[in-house]
Design a protein around this nucleic acid. Structure first.
Length: 370
DNA sequence: GATGCGTGGCT
DNA sequence: TAGCCAAGCAT
């Protein structure tokens, strides 16, 4: 016999309740729609919906708005995105995080121009094949831009659904996400109501059915149907298993000035902050003597050197504890050693306009200016 | 299925 | 403050 446990499909309790939430949700959304004025709701096109959904992945709407507006001014259509300069692309994304989203966006634009005549396909399976588009995003684009009856199951829909059904399944498990999709799909309308229903779920999750603190059940159009509200268990749901603890890395960050120019290096093309620019940095916390030795070994002549305030940056899975040194170098610099990553010397203008530098280094850059 | 991938806001 | 969380995807 096969002793491996076969994963059973997740069954949601009281799933029939879901049939009765569609009407109240749509009615509520139509009454509320002017309350959340979002730029991607003003002129709905497949490109606009696609761009907004990518930017909104794991990112709050308030953070996305200025990026979305600026991005469309620079790259107003899919064709210009497909042909844009990579440094410009990353500059437009600088500070938004999850940078592979931007690279996948451009990759997908190339495919769309190549395979689909420059227009997004109005088809779930075809959307799903594009880089950076998963089940959620394919459903969001399909429903909002093309009126396809697809539930876009994100964190909001999961939370609302688990509460309405008073279901204690672990929403960190992909199988639960899939079960919610299958449970909701039969009740989804086609046409404009499809996108409206998905956005109604999201707005409800963002403004009423809150993830932390007390949800605003008194203002919720689903309160009378909600089994968790009925039982008083809203704040115990949804259940979500904890993620692994993040590791800590110590770094020594160098602010190397040569006249007006500041040294930068390019990060590797894979992994954390792939392909972005950074301040030169070394693993561990080095003493002043060790920093000076490192500089000397690269033919860089130190004029002055001073400690900067410590800084800490927390990523989702790693924490950087950084010590910084500001160094004035004699110019011109000598050639760097072969094993060192090459330094580029950026003027303040290039720093602002050309190089994409992640937020993790902004503490020290502010030190540089201020 | 678990892990890597950013950043900022909230409690 | 430390931890949790946000309109997830790729591997």
């Amino acid at each position: 016999m096969n002793t491996k446990k076969k994963a059973l499909p997740i069954r949601l309790p009281h799933a029939e309740v879901l049939s009765s939430i569609v009407g109240p949700l749509l009615t509520w959304y139509e009454g509320q729609s002017t309350l959340r004025c979002l730029p991607w709701r003003e002129e709905v096109t497949p490109y606009h919906t696609w761009l907004s959904e990518i930017m909104l992945q794991q990112t709050r709407a308030s953070a996305v708005i200025p990026y979305y507006t600026r991005f469309l001014e620079a790259l107003p259509d899919i064709e210009s995105l497909a042909r844009c300069d990579d440094e410009l692309l990353m500059k437009l994304w600088q500070g938004l995080g999850y940078y592979s989203r931007a690279r996948n966006l451009k990759k997908a634009a190339g495919v769309i121009c190549q395979e689909y005549g420059g227009k997004l396909p109005a088809d779930f399976a075809a959307l799903l094949e594009l880089p950076g588009i998963g089940r959620y995003t394919a459903s969001a684009i399909g429903s909002i831009a093309f009126g396809l009856p697809l539930p876009a199951v994100d964190g909001n829909i999961l939370r609302v659904t688990m509460r309405v059904l008073q279901c204690g399944e672990d929403i960190a498990q992909p199988a639960v996400r899939r079960a919610v999709e299958e449970a909701l799909a039969p009740y989804y309308p086609s046409g404009q109501a499809a996108g409206a229903l998905n956005q109604a779920f999201m707005d409800l999750g963002a403004t009423i059915c809150l993830p932390h603190g007390a949800p605003h059940c008194a203002a919720c159009p689903l309160a009378r149907l909600c089994l968790a509200h009925d039982a008083g268990s809203e704040q115990q749901l949804p259940v979500k298993s904890k993620k692994a603890k993040r590791r800590v890395e110590q770094k020594t960050v160098l602010l190397l000035h040569q006249g007006r120019a500041l040294a930068l290096t390019k990060r590797p093309n894979k992994g954390l902050l792939a392909g972005l620019w950074e301040l030169p940095n070394l693993p561990g916390h080095l003493t002043q003597a060790e920093v000076e030795a490192w500089l000397a070994a690269r033919g860089l002549r130190t004029l002055t050197i001073a400690r900067l305030p410590d800084a800490r940056h927390i990523f989702s899975h790693v924490e950087w504890q950084m010590q910084g040194w500001a160094v004035e170098l004699a110019s011109p610099d000598a050639m760097v050693a072969e094993d060192a990553s090459p330094l580029v010397w950026a003027s303040p203008e290039e720093l602002a306009d050309t190089y994409s530098i992640p937020s993790a280094f902004q503490y020290f850059l502010h030190e540089h200016h201020g």
